[in-house]
Amino acid sequence: MSPLIEMKNIEKHFGPVIALNGVSFDVRPGECHCLLGDNGAGKSTFIKTMAGVHKPTKGEILIGGEPMSFQNPRDAMGAGIATVYQDLAMIPLMSVTRNFWMGREPVRKVGPFRFIDFRLANQVTMDEMQRMGINLRAPTQAVGTLSGGERQTVAIARAVYFGAKVLILDEPTSALGVRQTANVLSTIDRVRKSGVGVVFITHNVRHAMAIGDRFTVLNRGQTLGTAKRGEIKPEELQDMMAGGQDMAELEGSLGGTV
C-alpha cells in the first residue's frame, strides 16, 4: 500500500543547532508506525514538522505522492494530519462536548442568529466516546473529572471523527498507569483497524512492541533505520535508542530491559 505521508531527508536547523539531520519516515493506511528515541533525539521537532508547526530547513514532504508545504498547523489539519499532544489535548475546565467540538462547533440557525446545536453535539460526543469504550456520565461532564487515559482517548476520538487520515500521538502513554496505558493502546488498535495511519511517539520500548507494526529509531537528529514487527528484538531497539554499548552494560548490571 502506498504511504499516506512521506517525509524525505528532513533537516531542521535552529540557528547553529541542527535538530534534525536527514530524517526519513512514512506512514501507510491502517498501520501503527512507532517513532522511538531518547530525550533530545529530535522526536518533538520531527512531529512538529509533520504537523505544520515548523517548516523543514531541507527535505520533502509528500502527501499521497504529491509534494506539500505546510505554512501552519491548519494546513496540516486540512491535509488530514491530526496531532494529539501529551499535555495540550484537552481543557480540563470545559465539558467533554465543548472540548470535543472546540473550534468546529456545529451550529443551528434561529432567524439571523447561529447557536451551537447542543443536541447534535452531545449525541455525537456520547456515541463516539462509547465507540472508544468510554461511558461518560454525561456529555456535560468536565474533562477534568476524567482520567489521563480517558482524556487521551477523547482527543483521539475527536481527531478521528474530524477525518484524520494520519494521527500523530505524542507520548500518549508516558504519564499513564498500567491499566490506562492498556486502554490507550487498545484505542490505537481500534483506530488503526479503521484505516487511519497512526504515528506513535514513545521512549518506552514495551509500549511500542505491544502495538507497533513498524519501528523507526531516532538518535541525535538522525534515523537509525526502520524495522518491521518480528524483525527486531526489544533489546536491540533499546540499544539503538540509547546509542550503544554502554547502555547494554548498564542494563546487564540492572538485570534486564529498562
Partner: peptide
Amino acid sequence: RTRFGNWIFASGG
C-alpha cells in the same frame, strides 16, 4: 450558546 462563547472559554482555559 454560541461558537464564539465556546472560543471565549477555550482561550481562557
